[in-house]
Amino acid sequence: MKDENTYSSFEKGKPVIKIENLQKQFGDEVVLNNFNLEMFENENLVLMGKSGSGKSVMIKCLVGLMEPDSGRIEVLGKDISRLERTEMDELRAEIGFLFQGSALYDSMTVRENLEFPLRRHTKRMNIENTDELVLEALESVGLTKTIDLMPEELSGGMQRRIALARALILKPKIILYDEPTTGLDPITAKEIIQLMKNIQKKYKTSSLIITHDVDCARVISDRMILLLEGTNYAEGTFKELSTSEDPKIQAFFK
């Protein structure tokens, strides 16, 4: 059901993520069915779909939190199903992950939260001054003052920004956003989206954004993939897709 005709004129770089024929089911329920995706360097790719359409499952397969039933996932040129645990951890250092509910560690301060991704990589990546990195990441989300607070002392929007800082502290090549604006009021959501764009420019990362928020998709997307019933239904720029006459595509933008 791929609609090749609506493909955009976006200038392709090197592919960083390549997913072929991804298949995943829980019991009798097929969540992902023959899903394909390709993401290129410096691109903001938005994956849109209703909740329960398998977006989160796909993104978890991408970082090895779940194993697909079949299919091939290549990240930065490496087939992740063939990786050893340590190799996988090295690869994960190149991927930042912003979780749906921020997923900050409740029992740790903001500083400890940000240091956490560094602790496994300090030796390998010759990180000498973790404080500097922490401060730099906090600066880029504009929350340096919260460094010694506990997550529960922060508002939802601030938590999301700290989570973003944690996702980019290792200066990853790819950032995965799992519903970056859910649970936030529209104004805070806009701030987060703006922040995502700024970070994009500053760190020159490629981003895969999973969302069902149309505003978010409009502001940030270079290219979009629409997910329907576990497979990629349509692909194109926001403009192309939002003006499509296919009633199934239109349903995404209501």
């Binding site: 978890k60 970082v63 090895g64 939190l65 951890d89 090295e90 994960r92 250092a93 991927i95 992950f97 979780f99 749906q100 509910g101 921020s102 997923a103 900050l104 560690y105 409740d106 029992s107 956490f116 991704p117 602790r119 496994r120 990589h121």
Partner: peptide, 19 residues
């Protein structure tokens, strides 16, 4: 503690952070 860490994906976040 572990239950809420599981539900809020903190456990997943650790895994992704290489721990």
């Amino acid at each position: 503690e572990l239950g809420s860490m599981k539900v809020t994906e903190q456990i997943d976040a650790m895994e992704v952070s290489g721990t």
